[in-house]
Amino acid sequence: MSKHRMGGQTLYLTQNPPKIISRASIVGKKEGEGPLAEYFDKIIEDDLWGEKSWEKAERRMLIETAELTLRKAKMEPRDINYLFGGDLLDQIVTATFAARSLGIPFYGLYGACSSMTQTMSLAAPLIDGGYADNVLCVTSSHFCSAERQFRYPLEMGVQRPPTAQWTVTGAGGVLLSSDGKGPCITHVTTGKVIDFGIKDTNYMGAAMAPAAADTIRAHFEDTGRGPNDYDLIVTGDLAKYGRKLTIDLLKKDGYDIEDRFIDCGCEIFYESQDVHAGASGCACSAVVLAGYLLRKMEDGEINRILMASTGALHSIITSQQGDSIPGIAHAVAIEKKG
């Protein structure tokens, strides 16, 4: 029996819990017009950012975010033991091509929009166990590149239903380290793939909510903690209706999280920005965590959060073949110590 496990799905990092010593976020123009604009490091002026394609623009965002994260910690790529990265495009090309430029030993991870906490979940125990000193976690998404891969061409004149979500254009990165100052990752709860049979690709929030609820419930059961132990419980991109579904699912299990529960997909845009149910994408939880939430922790407004990025693990092919959309959520507990 492993010494560092709690319950079925949770790791308890006690030896040398990794600190988040640096963070960076770059977002697109629309995100820069939203309520969190002041928290981001950089807002790009247009979606193409002077590149030849959206895919190249997304790649550049990821690379610059990674470099900025390192620069803030006064580190070079050679100081970093591992780079963990993920994105939404086929074969996670954004992360892999970025890793090509950065030259850091690399694991590419696909967890759809859950990538941010997925990368952190794997990086944290490496540091706690003494297998790494510095690990960089980065993820990105881009509205235009995701839209054309998953839905319709941009110039197609189609209406979006009220439950549709808007993919965030941006990239976020955090640097985890065995040494230095910053909030610690204390627990990692790995999610199961959960599928309650939702097939509507315009209603991702409903497809992912059961996974979010399942992981949060597992975290509480494994650790013996409850909603009151956290200042904030945060999910990735469930948006308006998915958030409501998660609250209701957890109420059935006896946990009332409503008063301290936010969803990154509900935070990043104003309602007037015509994004329908809210935001989505790997970058959604990444930039809200790296830009907004960690800043609030630095400022001392919040001290302990449970962060669970959520992902929908379908592909175009599976959806066209009539399969439902499996969801996943990975949670990390982040705590300010001292």
Partner: peptide, 16 residues
């Protein structure tokens, strides 16, 4: 469970 959940999720989503 799935059926119940899907019905509930659909009831939440505002009609176009």
């Amino acid at each position: 469970i799935n059926k119940e959940y899907q019905d509930y999720a659909n009831s939440l989503s505002p009609k176009s």
